[in-house]
């Protein structure tokens, strides 16, 4: 196992669900479970856990107190369930949960205000004690776990993926919010790259705008569409220049921005170059032999992943995809 300076769990894990994974890219959840099962990671998915509020939080709808109270509620379930190792699939869940735990530990007045609200409304069981959750060690992202166990990944190799040109895009809310907890750098983030390396599929060392964001900007994608897409174009053009086959992400919000908008961006820039957009867990699952439709869920991607499978010589039955509107 890799030597890291923060605790990375392989058991007692609550695999924390993401609203965008659930509704947009459910294959990310299926792939993560597939890979975790192979690697012998022990986890539960708990339907008592609410969403982290992340999107609403950064739409500015949720105030810090409400977000933190919901986190305290979630934490209490995980602790009672003896699975307090939070492993989210989304960068924003990761950052929100860490921030909430920090506030609950450090700001005594806020913790007390929340506990008081719980007490006065018959929700005593949700009360949070200082230190219940360690923001550094008890909240890690799926990529942290994959990185920690990366040397085991080749043991489950079923497919060769070494002929791909890969670019990685690391979630800002994984890298930059709690940068002291980020593994493998945040100014030039490389944690996904390191996971690719063990699959003998090295990613581009650098491309212009590599550490920059996807452009979604929470509200911007909806309320300020032009600004959002202008920002995405920066990275999009740089990826075109590098002629990448696949862009790997670790957060469904980034995945949505690059995958759902690829056609829109091509129309905007007049720049055409196919690349697939995948979560790193999906690629690892593919490498381990997972079914493209039944595990990776590529039918939920706007950009077809099939050309990538063709390049890799992986067989598939395209009739399993009933969502895409076929031209023929």
């Amino acid at each position: 196992m890799v030597d890291v300076d923060k605790f990375i769990p392989t058991e007692n894990i609550t695999l924390f669900r993401s609203c965008l994974v659930s509704a947009e890219y459910p294959g990310v959840e299926a792939s993560t479970k597939f890979v975790f099962d192979k690697l012998g990671v022990e986890y539960v998915i708990d339907r008592n856990q609410s969403c982290c509020t992340g999107l609403g939080h950064y739409y500015d709808i949720f105030d810090e107190l409400s977000t933190t109270a919901l986190a305290a509620r979630n934490f209490s379930y995980a602790i009672r369930n003896n699975h307090k190792q939070y492993v989210p699939m989304c960068a924003t869940c990761y950052a929100i949960l860490k921030t909430s735990a920090k506030i609950l530990n450090e700001k005594d007045d806020v913790r007390e205000e929340i506990n008081k609200a719980f007490r006065e409304n018959g929700l005593e069981e949700f009360q949070y004690n200082k230190g219940d959750i360690d923001p550094r060690d008890d909240i890690t992202h799926v990529v942290d776990v994959l990185y920690y166990l990366k040397d085991k990944i080749p043991e489950f190799k079923k497919r060769d993926i070494s002929n791909l040109t890969i670019a990685t895009h690391h979630g800002c809310h994984y890298c930059k919010v709690h940068y002291n907890d980020t593994l493998c750098g945040y100014r030039n983030p490389e944690i996904i790259d390191k996971i690719c390396e063990v699959m003998e599929a090295p990613a581009l060392q650098w491309y212009d705008h590599k550490p920059r964001h996807c452009g979604s900007g929470f509200r911007q994608r909806y309320a300020n569409r032009e600004l959002s897409l202008d920002a995405t174009v920066d990275k999009f053009e740089s990826l075109h220049k590098e002629k990448v086959d696949v862009l790997l992400v670790m957060c469904p919000n980034c995945q949505l921005q690059f995958d759902r908008y690829e056609q829109v961006l091509e129309d905007m820039t007049g720049d055409k170059h196919y690349f697939a957009v995948m979560n790193i867990a999906q690629l690892v699952a593919l490498y381990m032999g997972a079914d493209p439709y039944k595990v990776l869920g590529i039918q939920t991607h706007t950009v077809n992943v099939e050309p990538l499978l063709d390049k890799l010589g992986i067989e598939y039955d395209s009739t399993e995809d009933t969502l895409h509107v076929r031209n023929e």
Binding site: P26, A30, D63, A69, N121, L323
Partner: peptide
Amino acid sequence: VREELGLDSMFLLPEAKESVDKTLDAIGF
């Protein structure tokens, strides 16, 4: 699609929904 992927319901358990609602009420949201 979720069923094809072998995934459980994405929705919270009924009593969990209720306690989320109570929490948000209690905290003033």
